[in-house]
Design a protein around this nucleic acid. Structure first.
Lengths: 210, 210
DNA sequence: ATTCATGCCGTACATATGTACGGTTACCAA
DNA sequence: TTGGTAACCGTACATATGTACGGCATGAAT
């Protein structure tokens, strides 16, 4: 006996192909796999699928079209994703079904950010360095959640002068303020009449690297 | 005529269902949609699919199983994802097919991080505050790319004393050093003999928020 | 009243797709 | 040699699945 438990290079190729196609859209059908590798028989693919199943590397439902799914090289390979709409400026009102203003979309798996798919989650590109004291930089993407009551010390997005800005929410002696985390912006703004658009729950930074 | 161009609530429901199922794994078949909504005819689903296509909200290939795909409410709805293995400590050697040591997996869409799917991308959970000067905190996840030659000023992961640490790579007078970005760690380590494991290209932060 | 889109039912059909079965070749091990 | 696995080919067959066609009811617009 040889290669009983380890994966062969051919099987590796096929597994990679399936994973790739899944990420691009649909998992491939058996005949699509056959065509890609030049097989003239769908049975050949079935053999490989069976081998990959035996070795616990692939999962698929019996008789279901395009159901091949790679079992995690990692404990959990594909987790539920959230599609987070990306706004440049937060609109004043949150109309539930008006997502037209979204400028883009960020997809991150839920586990990574520790977010429950609230559907009230959105992203905001940071402008300025007013929150550098909290290590939030210009160009970062803040992940926020709408409809959560902020605690003191939370970073929140609020609408000030038609512009949404990120600030620290401070509760002091029963009064709430917004504080910038940069000595250049020493202002403490009363937050009584302000609309808090969301509480920050995560951050994504893209390093400029050309 | 009424409702010619706008989407009806029923169609909205079906579109949402398709999008949800896509995110969870496979797009649904027509009969699965029918079952979910209590339709007793696949033709009903076909009608809705046709309507959604007419309105440019759905895309699907003719005759292909499970190919329903929502056309972006955003410019691009589902983009290619990268599955980034998450290591606690980077192993000394990078064996191409040994991914067992991965402790988890982060899924982010490529566009967001501006990464080409190099398959040599990995993630690392930050320990310590040695890079606080670059606004990288304890508990952050660094996204790194292996096999890239670092430029001066890049943040890199290097293996020091069996531990991988994040440092700034500095090229000075033809010599290369590693520098911590924290006054508490004022050391400048010669990088000649060091193995640079990867260059940092992105960062993901999860705010502790219970 | 007439027309048209929506929203559904049933049935039927074409094909896309998974799966089974038998055969072939090559390689490795006992 | 004998046995087992891998890796293919061909040809079926069962079913999963998309699609077409005709029909019915409702509500809105003309």
């Amino acid at each position: 006996m040889y290669g009983m438990n380890s994966i062969t290079s051919r099987q590796q190729e096929i597994l990679e192909f399936i994973k790739q196609r899944r990420n691009e859209g649909q998992p491939p059908s058996a005949r699509e796999i056959a065509e890609h590798f030049g097989f003239r028989s769908p049975g050949t693919v079935a053999d490989h699928i069976a081998a990959l199943r035996r070795k616990g590397l692939l999962k698929n439902s019996f008789g279901q079209a395009r159901s091949a799914e790679a079992v995690s090289p990692f404990p959990l390979q594909r987790r539920p994703l959230v599609d987070i709409p990306l706004y440049g400026v937060i609109p004043a009102g949150f109309a539930r079904d008006q997502v037209q203003e979204a400028q883009g979309c960020i997809s991150v798996d839920v586990e990574t950010l520790g977010i429950r798919p609230t559907a009230r989650t959105f992203a905001l590109e940071i402008r300025g360095d007013s929150m550098i004291g909290r290590h939030i930089l210009n160009g970062d993407f803040a992940i926020l959640e709408h409809g959560v009551t902020p605690c003191s010390g939370d970073v929140v997005a609020a609408l000030i002068d038609q512009e949404s800005t990120l600030k620290t929410y401070v509760l002091q002696k029963g009064k709430s303020y917004l504080r910038a985390e940069n000595p250049k912006y020493p202002k403490l703004i009363p937050a009584n009449e302000l609309v808090v658009q969301g509480v920050m729950v995560g951050l994504i930074r893209k390093m400029k690297h050309e």
